[in-house]
Structure formats: C-alpha cells, structure tokens
Amino acid sequence: MRERLRDVMATVFEVPVSDIPDDADSVTMPGWDSLRHLELMLELEMSFGVRIPADQVPELTSVGAIEDALRDHGAG
C-alpha cells in the first residue's frame, strides 16, 4: 500500500516518487497546500476505492495518517 500511496502522491504533487519520503507531511512537503490537499483526497478515493468522511479530510496530513485511514476504510 505504501508504494501505491507514494505513487498517487507523486502524481498529485508532480514530483518523482523518490521525493516522497515515508515521513512526508503537509509541513515538510513542498506544495502540499489546501487546494493540493483536496486534490490528494480525491485521488485517494479514486485510486483506492474508498470514501473519506468530511471530518477526516483535515486530519490526513501525513503519509502515516493517510495509510492508517486507508487501512481503516478497507483499502487493499
């Protein structure tokens, strides 16, 4: 899952996968602004086939948090 997630993030942030470290978060990741965050949430829903609840959207600001949420929502 980690690799797929990094692929999605690389596409959204328009950077090579190698530029997405395992501890990437919205503070350290260049370009992770509010608009890009919404784009990321949309791509996660489409790529992993999950539905992210509204109250969780602002919390998914790191690779770890996103991975946990995807697992909770049953993403493979």
Binding site: L38, M41, L42, E45, M46, R51, I52, A54, V57
Partner: peptide, 11 residues
C-alpha cells in the same frame, strides 16, 4: 464517474 461527498467534488 465519481462523487466525493466530503469534498463536494465530482469527477
């Protein structure tokens, strides 16, 4: 094609 409720976004 896709409706993201939380984002009020449609693909």
């Amino acid at each position: 094609k896709h409706k993201a409720e939380a984002l009020r976004t449609l693909v």
